[in-house]
């Protein structure tokens, strides 16, 4: 593999792995604090699946980068500017409604992307995606159900879900903003061009929001920068401060 191809693949793997790492971390913050025990347990399962997927994506990224690195090195020893997750997943949890809305907006994307990745020309990518897509099929079913239930629940739950959708919608567009890395992945048959997934995504999200009696905002303005690494929100630095604390404070220790 030529160096630039290798770099491109690494960037792609970081995008996948950082999304699941950062979202998994956010969801894990709920453990012990959810509205009801059953939801507490379900959210922990989601977080566990996401962090499990992270090990595969970042583990593969580490291998391609340099044989000696591990998924942990990649997760715990990079700084903000080297993260490639979309901004959506690093936003603070907000209330339970905002967390579940974010989860659904992400799950919906993954539920369309992962089955395609399972046919990737890169066998490792295909293998990871195959497993992740089984988990995601359940995640999206559950988060969609919850969004519908709360959107079409009480007046208060409806208002909170609409507020969550309004708050998060500007972060949806970034998932589909293709760049030269996406073009290279598509050309090599490794991953689809994300822009090509948009109509299927809009159909799925449109259907669920209609059932949830929620209105998708008119504006398609999109905050960007996380995937490309150009910028992040201020929130990511604080998240990493916590997540990476032990590894940074005691370099070289084994845990």
């Amino acid at each position: 593999m030529a160096t630039s191809d290798k770099d491109m693949l690494v960037q792609f793997l970081l995008r996948m792995g950082d999304n699941s790492l950062i979202l998994g971390h956010r969801v894990s913050e709920w453990c012990g604090h959810a509205p009801v025990l059953e939801e507490d347990i379900a959210l922990a399962n989601t977080a566990l699946d996401l962090i499990g997927q992270t090990q595969f994506w970042l583990g593969y990224a580490a291998e391609v980068m340099d044989g000696d690195k591990t998924a942990d090195d990649v997760a715990f020893l990079r700084d903000v500017w080297n993260f490639r997750n979309i901004l959506l997943v690093e936003l603070p949890n907000g209330d339970f409604g905002q967390t579940l809305m974010r989860q659904f907006l992400f799950d919906a994307y993954q539920s369309i992307l992962l089955p395609r990745l399972s046919k990737s020309s890169d066998p490792r990518v295909a293998e990871i995606a195959e497993k992740a897509s089984k988990e995601c099929a359940y995640h999206v079913e559950r988060s969609a159900d919850t969004v519908v239930g709360l959107g079409d629940g009480t007046e208060e739950s409806h208002a909170r879900m609409q507020a969550a959708l309004d708050r998060l919608w500007p972060y949806v567009g970034e998932m589909f903003a293709s760049d030269d890395i996406d073009a290279a992945m598509a050309a090599a048959g490794i991953a689809p061009d994300p822009a090509s997934l948009r109509s299927e995504y809009d159909a799925l999200v449109g259907k669920v929001m209609a059932e949830a009696t929620l209105t998708i905002p008119q504006s398609d303005f999109a905050h960007k920068g996380g995937r490309s690494g150009k910028t992040h929100t201020e929130h990511l630095g604080h998240l990493l401060t916590q997540m990476q604390w032990l590894q940074r404070a005691y370099p070289g220790a084994s845990w």
Binding site: L37, E38, I41, A42, N45, D145, G149
Partner: peptide
């Protein structure tokens, strides 16, 4: 046993609680 608003959610909750 567990609590759920309806049967559908009860099945999902059961999956999360009892098949870990």
């Amino acid at each position: 046993s567990l609590h759920a608003p309806d049967a559908e959610m009860a099945i999902k909750n059961a999956r999360d609680v009892y098949t870990r």
